[in-house]
């Protein structure tokens, strides 16, 4: 057994539907320390969500183990709070009630009702959502819903926060804003985070390490890139940093050179390139022109190839 906070050991996943078997994940090994911010990046359909859902306990792995804080994970629980891409707030509850549902369930015994009320407000304040406490999800914007989803997850005081493309559905400006907030929250609370993203800038800006997955079927971890940039990180200052751009290019090279070759062998996932390429300018594009310029040659190369 390793000394890491979260360990994913030899995890494999094969989906079986009737007689159709698809081997999605092969030999996934990942070790994460407490307080680390990990991003998982890879082409669409390679199995990123499957990894995250196995850690969450929502999907059962075919073999291998996930160990969190010296305990084996085999069922979902509030110690691994999930933020979904499509927010998944309960539409019949207000913003406050959505968070309160989680708090009352998770801390129902350990806190008094006054403490729980304050804890709900505290977490909504973290994501700047105190102004819309009594609105329903249908009455707030996509970015606000995602904030509430993050507040709900934080309110469970999870050991790991699992984010599945949390900003994927948002426009670039809102996304940049939320990325800054997540960075601020992470630097204050020191959560352990696993985040899936399609956005190279987002991955480099937020992460301590970027886990790059090879293409499916039978995806595994291709490379792990440590991002050695001092925190707090500022997106505008970083846009001119050679180290930052080096990291970006490492990721881009992995996604569009190393992994592109594989696609000739299995030409099953051409749309994934287009989708990932679109998200490249991502959160950084609004604020840093040089940043976007760096992505352009790669973009052209990709679109020329497909």
């Amino acid at each position: 057994m390793s000394s890491h906070y979260l360990s994913i050991e030899n995890v494999e996943k094969t989906f079986e539907k009737g007689s159709v078997r698809s081997h999605v994940l092969s030999n996934i090994n990942l070790h994460i320390d407490q307080g680390e911010y990990i991003s998982i990046i890879g082409h669409s359909g390679c199995g990123k969500s499957t990894v995250l859902n196995i850690v969450a306990g929502l999907i059962e792995q075919s073999s291998g183990v996930v160990i969190l804080d010296r305990k084996e994970v085999n069922a979902p629980g509030p110690d691994r709070a999930l933020v979904f891409q499509n927010h998944s707030l309960l539409p019949w509850l207000t913003v406050y009630e959505n968070v309160a549902l989680a708090v009352n369930k998770v801390a129902g015994r350990s806190k008094t009702s006054v403490e729980r009320h304050e804890w709900v407000l505290y977490n909504l304040e973290l994501v700047n959502m105190l102004h819309a406490l009594h609105k329903r999800p249908s009455e707030i914007s996509g970015g606000m819903k995602q904030r509430v989803g993050i507040a709900r997850a934080l309110a469970m005081q999870p050991k790991v926060l699992l984010l599945d493309e949390p900003f994927g559905a948002l426009d670039a400006l809102t996304r940049a804003h939320l990325q800054d907030e997540v960075m601020r929250i992470h630097s204050n609370l020191k959560n352990t985070v696993m985040m899936i993203t399609h956005d190279v800038d987002e991955a480099v800006l937020l992460s301590d390490r970027i886990v790059m997955m090879t293409n499916g079927p039978s995806a595994s971890i291709g490379e792990i890139l440590s991002i050695d940039l001092p925190r707090p990180r500022d997106r505008i200052a970083l846009a001119d940093s050679p180290r930052y751009n080096h990291y970006r290019q490492e990721v881009l090279r992995f996604l569009y050179e190393k992994q592109r070759k594989l696609e000739h062998i299995s030409p099953k996932h051409p749309p994934s390139q287009a989708r990932s390429a679109q998200s490249l300018p991502g959160g950084g594009s609004g604020s840093s022109p040089s940043d976007a310029a760096a992505g352009v040659p790669v973009l052209q190369k990709v679109s020329g190839a497909s």
Binding site: P76, A81, A102
Partner: peptide, 13 residues
């Protein structure tokens, strides 16, 4: 929706 079930499972309702 599957998402609502997942919320319930994570919260262990």
């Amino acid at each position: 929706p599957e998402d609502y079930r997942n919320v319930a499972r994570v919260l262990r309702l």
